[in-house]
């Protein structure tokens, strides 16, 4: 039976269920399980639920080493930018060790972090850095946009035998949605059509899916039928679903909270250019402007994509003839 729960609780539910299912799953991070009142600690004990010091290199590196030798660690990193102080472990260790060993060793570690916290956290805590990780062979990157996907993709990430970077948009933490109770796994590498439509395709990521769906609602009132595709996984990227949608509608708007040249949208635009050339009448990218994220609210709002910017982009591509598939 599906139940309405919050996005943040859906992630926790998946971790708890996977820890119940598999004794090799462990969970640790900074500022967690500090007292005996911690519900995870109560349930699983202090061997499997641990507090870590502010040591990202060791936290992630230990997760990798534990994964190489038989555990399935979930490392709570809180904010994706904190991974930057340990990027060798994320980019140059976890995804390379299996390959360099000729397939002898697996690294089933989950690196969990929030991203894109646009609530006045200024330049160093509000960014979208998935672009830097989605092009690293050996690494998987998931970005769930609904509570159900948050649960299903966490379960899939923990069960996956590869290193998975699990990025959740902080702005969705309190959003409620229907989430299946009990075992629920969303396959990694599969896009989801969040809204079907015929005039234009919007490909949106993470928090931007919510904004795209709100924009689609308003556009429908004006008679524009929008299809919203959520890749859900950025690596490996499900190009087929995106290309099929674009070929159907003939127009596409890519919405990404990251700045233009470090966005997943730029990568997707390249794939569309190669695989749907001749089928696309127009393509627009709605991304963050090329600035660090500013502190003050009007500045922040100005830089980050919003519904109005998406609607403007959709209308601009509607001005072009769709090319018949």
């Amino acid at each position: 039976m599906p139940k309405e729960i919050m996005y943040g609780d859906a992630i926790a539910a998946a971790i708890i269920e996977e820890m119940q299912r598999d004794p090799n799953v462990i969970f640790y991070g900074q500022n967690m399980a500090m007292t005996e009142r911690d519900p995870m600690l109560k349930k699983f004990g202090k061997e499997r639920v641990r507090i870590a010091p502010i040591s990202e290199t060791a936290e992630i590196g230990i997760g990798i080493g534990a994964a190489m030798t038989g555990l399935r660690p979930v490392v709570e990193l809180w904010m994706s930018e904190f991974m930057l102080v340990a990027f060798d472990q994320v980019i140059n260790e976890a995804p390379r060790l299996r390959y360099m060993s000729g397939g002898q060793v697996n690294v089933p570690v989950v690196l969990k972090a929030g991203y894109g916290f646009c609530a006045g956290w200024a330049g160093q805590h509000s960014n979208c850095i998935y672009h830097t990780m989605m092009g690293i062979p050996g690494l998987k990157v998931v970005v769930p946009s609904t509570p159900a996907d948050a649960k299903g993709l966490m379960a899939a990430a923990i069960r996956d035998d590869n290193p998975v970077v699990y990025l959740h948009p902080y702005m969705l933490t309190l959003d409620k949605g229907e989430v299946p109770e009990g075992e629920y796994v969303v396959p990694i590498g599969l896009s989801d059509i969040k809204r079907a439509g015929s005039d234009v395709t919007i490909v949106a990521i993470g928090w931007m899916v919510k904004k795209a769906l709100a924009a689609a609602e308003r556009l429908a009132e004006e008679g524009i039928s929008t299809e919203v595709v959520d890749p859900r996984t950025l690596a490996p990227l499900d190009i087929t679903t995106i290309v099929n949608s674009v070929k159907k509608t003939g127009r596409v708007v890519l919405v990404d909270q990251a700045p233009r040249h470090s966005s997943a949208a730029a990568v997707i635009a390249g794939e569309i250019a190669e695989h749907a050339v001749g089928s696309v009448g127009a393509l627009r990218m709605v991304t963050a402007l090329d600035t660090p994220i500013p502190y003050s609210e009007p500045l922040e709002n100005y830089v980050v994509p919003n519904e109005d910017k998406i609607i403007e982009a959709v209308k601009s591509v509607m001005a072009h003839e769709a090319v018949a598939a």
Binding site: I26, G61, G63, G65, M68, T69, G70, E93, L97, Q104
Partner: peptide
Amino acid sequence: PGTSGIIGQSIAHATGAALTAQ
């Protein structure tokens, strides 16, 4: 289980293997 070519990084991996053992 394997090695890293980046100086010092495998110290963390070894520490992780000790976590598994524990």
